[in-house]
Amino acid sequence: MPTMPKSVFWSRIDTAGSDHALFDDRRGLSARGVGLSVDPLPYTCRYELVTDETWSPTRLEVSVEGAGWLRTLRLERAAGQWRASTAEQGDLAAALRAIGRPDAGLPGTEDPDQFGDAIDVDLGNAPLFNTLPVRRLGLLDAEPGTAYRLTVVWVQVPSLVVIPAEQVYTALGSGRVRFASEGFTADLQLDANGYVEHYPGLAERREPAAR
């Protein structure tokens, strides 16, 4: 497994948890990361993401594991079409029922054609994925008010259910981009390379303490 020259670390601010992503962004993005969360039940989410040189995703592999269950998902885009393959061990639905939460649904999708010409993929609770449309569309350098409405392949966590989602990204200037989807809106603060520093309601970037 190749080493990665860069990394970012986020602390969750909506629940106890974190996300640590290692990546190489010299020619598009190659990344792998680990997310930890206590809600809706304790789980570890591991992911690997590959894009082409335009920052358009070509492959995403995700595994989510908790006590007594494990789900995996592989998404690949070829010839403009997404394909998904999944596997499950144990019973996430039973684990959720045991704590009074509703069934999360089956991983993956039964109809990959519903994504149409969607380019971007979004993994729940993982701030790294907001960088993909920001870099692909050049939003950091765009005129404030420039907006793009996108259909993205949204991977829910921890279920790994895959559904289409409508998202709007709007350039605000000064390293800020407004993200909106399904009635939710957040003004993301980004660094000079388009990586999230502050995601209101979700995560805050952390840096090593000065020595």
Rank of each mutant, 00 (worst) to 15 (best):
187 D>V: 02
79 A>F: 05
191 D>Q: 08
150 L>G: 08
194 G>R: 07
163 I>E: 14
176 R>P: 02
162 V>I: 08
109 T>N: 10
19 D>M: 02
134 V>T: 12
37 S>C: 15
177 V>M: 03
55 W>E: 08
100 G>M: 12
63 S>I: 13
7 S>M: 13
137 L>S: 06
201 G>H: 06
165 A>C: 05
85 S>A: 14
18 S>A: 15
92 L>E: 05
145 G>A: 14
88 E>M: 12
75 L>K: 06
69 W>Y: 12
199 Y>H: 08
122 D>L: 02
156 Q>K: 14
29 L>M: 15
155 V>F: 09
106 L>S: 15
180 A>K: 09
63 S>K: 10
19 D>Q: 09
139 L>N: 08
91 D>V: 10
105 G>A: 06
43 Y>P: 02
201 G>S: 07
18 S>C: 13
183 G>C: 12
122 D>Y: 01
13 I>F: 04
171 A>K: 07
118 A>G: 04
106 L>Y: 04
35 G>I: 01
107 P>M: 11
109 T>M: 06
45 C>V: 00
74 R>W: 01
26 R>F: 00
192 A>G: 11
154 W>R: 10
209 A>Y: 09
182 E>N: 14
26 R>P: 00
64 V>M: 03
54 T>V: 12
43 Y>W: 04
96 L>H: 00
151 T>A: 06
195 Y>E: 10
5 P>N: 12
148 Y>R: 14
21 A>Q: 04
186 A>G: 08
3 T>Y: 05
169 Y>C: 06
138 G>A: 06
121 V>C: 08
180 A>S: 15
159 S>N: 08
169 Y>M: 09
37 S>F: 02
85 S>T: 15
104 A>T: 02
8 V>R: 14
53 E>W: 02
49 L>P: 00
84 A>Y: 01
157 V>G: 06
208 P>W: 08
73 L>M: 11
138 G>Y: 07
172 L>E: 11
46 R>I: 10
137 L>Q: 06
208 P>M: 09
29 L>W: 09
183 G>Y: 10
210 A>C: 03
70 L>S: 13
92 L>T: 09
113 D>G: 13
49 L>I: 04
138 G>R: 02
10 W>F: 03
158 P>M: 07
60 L>T: 04
170 T>W: 11
45 C>S: 11
2 P>D: 10
61 E>P: 03
139 L>Q: 05
210 A>Y: 13
127 P>I: 04
48 E>S: 15
159 S>T: 07
65 E>M: 09
8 V>D: 05
69 W>G: 05
55 W>V: 03
196 V>S: 05
11 S>C: 10
27 R>S: 14
75 L>H: 01
167 Q>P: 04
56 S>W: 08
